[in-house]
């Protein structure tokens, strides 16, 4: 169930394997799951796995790689850029022979455009940054420090910035300021409103919701059968 894949290595460095959770039974349909990012990844981890278990039972192989620098990955997060994550997800899609992609929240920013599939509750780069910057200014204010969003944005662009414990490089930061999820041919949006409940990334504590997982999996199965997503 735990397996490995290899993202492209930066020039002059050896390629390091990354881990993934795989429900791999050699079936024809192979779904690459691009996880949510940062804090949302924690909030949605169990939900993501619950959806994957349902899709496995429905007959899909499911492949959930770590974004390099996140989760179990040993790669340094400050070395990651939007482009390197895009390249990593494309390499995962090829190495794991994925036929479809399910991108979750900001995962939509790095979904391989060559694969048909779905963007679940896609999150834009500016909104992701806005939420994380806001969390930092609120925490700073609680600690009696004055930090403004504007100065933090400038610092992020110039030097990179640690937000909520995640060290975001200047290149990643600048790219996220203009990153909007784009549907490639064969990809469609699955909005939160289709799941009949509030998004679990909103929760203050990680939680799960079996009914939402049922619905998301069912929408994907229905879409694969030729119905609307």
């Amino acid at each position: 169930m735990i397996s490995t894949w290899t993202p492209p290595a930066p020039e002059g460095t050896p390629a390091e394997a990354e881990l993934l959770v795989a429900f791999d039974r050699g079936r024809d349909l192979r779904l690459l799951v691009c996880p949510a990012w940062f804090d949302e990844a924690n909030k949605l981890r169990r939900f993501t796995l619950e959806v994957i278990r349902r899709l496995d039972r429905a007959g899909l192989d499911c492949l959930l790689p770590d974004l390099p620098g996140c989760n179990e990955s040993l790669a340094p997060l400050p070395n990651q850029t939007l482009e390197s994550w895009r390249a990593a997800m494309t390499a995962a899609a090829q190495g794991l022979r994925a036929t479809h992609v399910l991108a979750i929240r900001a995962g939509a920013l790095v979904a391989p455009p060559a694969l048909p599939g779905w963007h679940y509750a896609a999150q834009s780069g500016p909104k992701l940054l806005r939420g994380m910057i806001r969390a930092r200014t609120i925490a700073a204010r609680e600690a009696g420090l004055a930090e403004s969003s504007e100065s933090l944005m400038a610092l992020g662009r110039a030097e990179g910035l640690t937000l909520g414990g995640w060290a975001i490089s200047a290149a990643m930061f600048a790219a996220l300021e203009n990153a909007e999820p784009a549907l490639a041919p064969g990809q469609s949006d699955l909005a939160q409103s289709a799941l009949g409940g509030p998004g679990l990334w909103l929760r203050a504590e990680p939680d799960e919701d079996a009914r939402q997982a049922d619905r998301l999996a069912a929408r994907i199965v229905q879409s694969l059968a030729g119905g609307p997503a």
Binding site: D39, K127, R130, G131, M132, R134, A135, R136, T137, I138, A139, E142, S148, S149, G164, W201, L202, R203, A204, E205
Partner: peptide, 24 residues
């Protein structure tokens, strides 16, 4: 459970749902 990250999420969602902009 309502820590700074959760409050930030709450405020960002308020902006979306109410159509307002919340400044620092």
């Amino acid at each position: 459970e309502l820590d700074s990250m959760a409050v930030a999420g709450l405020l960002t969602e308020m902006e979306d749902r109410l159509g307002i902009v919340i400044e620092d």
